[in-house]
Design a protein around this nucleic acid. Structure first.
Lengths: 230, 230
DNA sequence: GCATCCAAGCTTGCATGCAAGCGCCTCCCG
DNA sequence: CGGGAGGCGCTTGCATGCAAGCTTGGATGC
């Protein structure tokens, strides 16, 4: 064991956000590659995926692919059956409702805490305002994909505003699931974009005024609107 | 690719509960071994843990230990620094509050849904009653560890009663964190056991009566009681 | 025709080996 | 005596190889 292990590791503990990604490791590449395939729905329902195939695709050995599969298994995106293979977990029909319920639970809880001491710091407000501006731009330009991306980021920013790292961690898992649901089940139309944008603008206003009750009410109706289309 | 991959895999999708565990793989053993060390607080604050050491301890090679470390990294229990080592992530001081907030959010949401259509199935009720009986036994016998285990299982049963698999998945992560907090911060005393047992009995009664509002109120006060001692 | 058994092909699990990265210690030079 | 550079030991990352397990297809006996 080395000497540095005997002391604290302050740098290592800066968990969220690796701002530097100089050379993605082979395992990381395999993870992102496979995850993207699953989330986008390119690998369809509930089957397939062999370590050897992915390894050959990426030109790496099976070992890092195996690690990537284990990570995806932990995220409940893949079901690794020992000595048999890895199958893409099909989404249960009720899963959309389950995910939305958890989204609402976490968003409500974090919304209250984010506004517990008045309005959040100006940096958070600026980020939210910039995000809403991006949404407007995407909405007027008709770029649905860009809007969807900004939409997800907006809600993640709200959760992060609570400064509850545990909530952020849990919410990340939900984001992946929702991404899959969206890619699998529906195509967002312009009317959805408009209503979502209006909701988000109202939510931003509530945040700016530090009105927790109004924000919670908006989250509730916003999530219920999604429940209708999912 | 084999033929079975081209068809659905109904058996593989039965995610929850591996009732058969004939021979835990080396990777699984490494995972449980290391996770137990972290959760119990045996590996103290924010340091140490080398793949080679763990591999030697268990008499296996480094490969499965590496996989185990990656899983623990994904669970935010370990911080793997590339080419440097793996450090046990110290728990932030605010993390106790964060975890409790998420617990409350998830327990409230799932409680409402579990009782949305009246009382849950008798199998669920039986499991809850049996668990409470175990709690009483442990409480009267003064077995704090057994009570703590049953306590955790009780809340997990309540969450599972919602039949929301996503909630169960998220709650599992919280359970691990709370286990760590408990081992790290406090030792549960008999008065805590008594009040928790009383809370649980009241919650069971609310479930039996299908009274969602009462259950939510109990969850709220129960979690707040924990917040006081953490 | 049908059930059974066996062998081949695929898959993954894991051990091993090598190379590369990082920190620390020491030595050298100014 | 101080500062910098190099070597050494530690660590992990990944490729490779082998063995074991599951599935499946066909051959065999009834």
């Amino acid at each position: 064991m080395q000497a540095w292990m005997r002391h604290r590791l302050p740098r290592v503990t800066e968990r969220p956000g690796p701002p530097t990604a100089p050379s993605p490791s082979a395992a990381e590449r395999a993870y992102r590659h496979t995850k993207a395939k699953i989330l986008s729905g390119e690998v369809p329902g509930g089957r397939l995926l062999s370590e050897g195939d992915v390894a050959a695709e990426l030109g790496i050995s099976r070992t890092p692919v195996h690690e990537a599969f284990l990570r995806l298994d932990a995220e409940r995106l893949l079901a690794v059956a020992p000595r048999r293979g890895a199958a893409v977990l099909p989404m249960a029909p009720d899963e959309a409702r389950d995910v939305l319920e958890m989204r609402e639970a976490i968003e409500l809880s974090t919304a209250r805490r984010a506004l517990a001491h008045g309005s959040p710091p100006s940096a958070v407000l600026d980020a939210l305002r910039a995000n809403v501006a991006t949404q407007r731009e995407a909405a007027t330009g008709g770029d649905v994909d860009a809007f969807v991306a900004a939409d997800g980021a907006f809600h993640a920013l709200l959760v992060a505003a609570s400064r509850n790292q545990t909530a952020v961690q849990l919410y990340d898992l939900l984001r992946d699931k929702q991404h899959r649901l969206r890619a699998q089940l529906l195509h967002v139309g312009p009317e959805e974009v408009a209503s979502s944008l209006a909701d988000h603008e109202a939510m931003l206003a509530a945040v700016e005024h530090g009105d927790a009750d109004a924000l919670c009410e908006l989250v509730h109706t916003h999530v219920r609107r999604h429940r209708g289309i999912l």
